[in-house]
């Protein structure tokens, strides 16, 4: 899922400063599951803003609404009534959602309430780990299902490096050496010979440095 963290309150208050009718817009997919921008978090942030507004003697009208996905036009279009009532929309979606909402309501002030951080899964309840960079050229078949692009600090394809100590990466004692994890995983799969195969320099042209990437499913495109 796409993981995000709520922006610092000071930054949120600064963005919303000129406005009175504020819509907190939650997203019901990734950011709901990562507990940062769903219906529950929208209610919490709305509650905080109402308390802050009353305390500061401001006459704020804080509305909250959550749609299933802010990254699809059909869903974003359905909330037009809510958006029209607001002076500003604070979207708690990932950057994708914020951009689509901003595109569909060009006249309206649309601001992000989250910092979109990464794609990952929860390792324990409440803690998420980055697992995928979306580099466009997946190598998981050779690495026991562990992504070295994401989880190795150097994105090495022929690891580990000399900074691997006792299974940890030299950047932090809390960070596992991805190549140690890959080694253990391949051992369990009886595929350790992969460790001896040389991986040539990869083609990074798919990784997004050439502007926004596009995916076209030709069979689905309606002319």
């Amino acid at each position: 899922m796409i993981v995000g963290d709520r922006k610092p309150m000071d930054e949120i208050l600064e963005m919303l400063e000129p406005y009175e009718n504020i819509l907190i817009l939650g997203c019901g997919t990734c950011v709901t599951v990562c507990l940062s921008g769903g219906e529950r978090e929208a209610a919490i942030l709305a509650g905080q803003l109402r308390i802050w507004g009353k305390k500061e003697g401001k006459n704020l009208n804080i509305m909250e609404h959550t749609i299933q996905r802010q990254c699809e036009k059909e869903w974003v279009d359905e909330m037009r009534g809510h958006v029209e009532k607001a002076d500003v929309v604070l979207s708690l979606a990932c950057g994708v959602g914020v951009q689509l909402v901003a595109e569909m309501y060009e006249e309206k002030a649309i601001y992000p309430g989250l910092n979109t951080t990464f794609m990952g899964y929860p390792v324990v309840h409440g803690t998420w780990l980055e697992n995928c960079r979306g580099c466009g050229n997946c190598v998981l078949a050779h690495t026991g299902g562990v992504c070295p692009i994401t989880r190795c600090a150097k994105s090495l394809l022929n690891g580990p490096c000399g900074g691997s100590q006792d299974g940890k990466c030299e950047i932090s004692k809390d960070t596992e050496c991805a190549w140690q994890v890959i080694y253990e995983r391949l051992k369990k799969k009886d595929q350790l010979d992969w460790m001896n195969s040389y991986q040539p320099p990869r083609d990074w042209s798919t990784a997004g440095d050439g502007g926004p990437r596009k995916s076209v499913k030709i069979e689905e495109v309606i002319d």
Partner: peptide, 8 residues
């Protein structure tokens, strides 16, 4: 914590 960050 949430209350403290809004000065309540």
């Amino acid at each position: 914590r949430l209350l403290e960050e809004i000065g309540f």
